[in-house]
Amino acid sequence: MRQALLALLAKEPAHGYELKQALETIFGIAYPSPNIGQIYVTLGRLEKDGYVRAVDVEQANRPNKKVYYITAAGREALETWVDEPTEGPRVRDEFFMKLVLAPLTGLADRMALVNRQRRHYLSLMRDLAELAELAERTDPANRAALLLIEGAMLHLQADLDWLERCQEELQ
């Protein structure tokens, strides 16, 4: 969330609610609608780190509103984030830990674990497919949202293929 807010503020100064709306517009239904409290908490931390600066703007008949600006340090932090390669596919996988360790404890057998996980992934896949249909219907111009959902589906397909490999190898 930090970098997303910095990126939005690098474009133009904004107050908290505008940032929430911008995130919703950009990521559409692929993105969990950010909680406004969480945005203000993150902005507070960014301010403490010197990455953003808040300016009170007076409003007629309303309490002042805080408009946030990115600082030079914030811009630098954002550039570093953009330039560095992003974390690749995980090597540590919680399910794999269960798969390897659970039989040692006698708590579950591997076949049952793989089967349960497969059904779970398939139900997630169904949910994503429904989300994709919804996005196509309600917000078809938002390619970012559609690509995010498609990406999640491809990852899930890979997870399922890998589950099949686990079942073949560990049976």
């Binding site: 997303a4 990521f27 692929a30 993105y31 969990p32 139900s123 997630l124 999640a152």
Partner: peptide, 18 residues
């Protein structure tokens, strides 16, 4: 194939987590 818990209305999925 079980049904997943429906996402809250007006909210979005859990596709991305920043």
């Amino acid at each position: 194939i079980p049904r997943v818990r429906r996402r809250p209305p007006g909210g979005a999925g859990d596709v991305v987590e920043l």
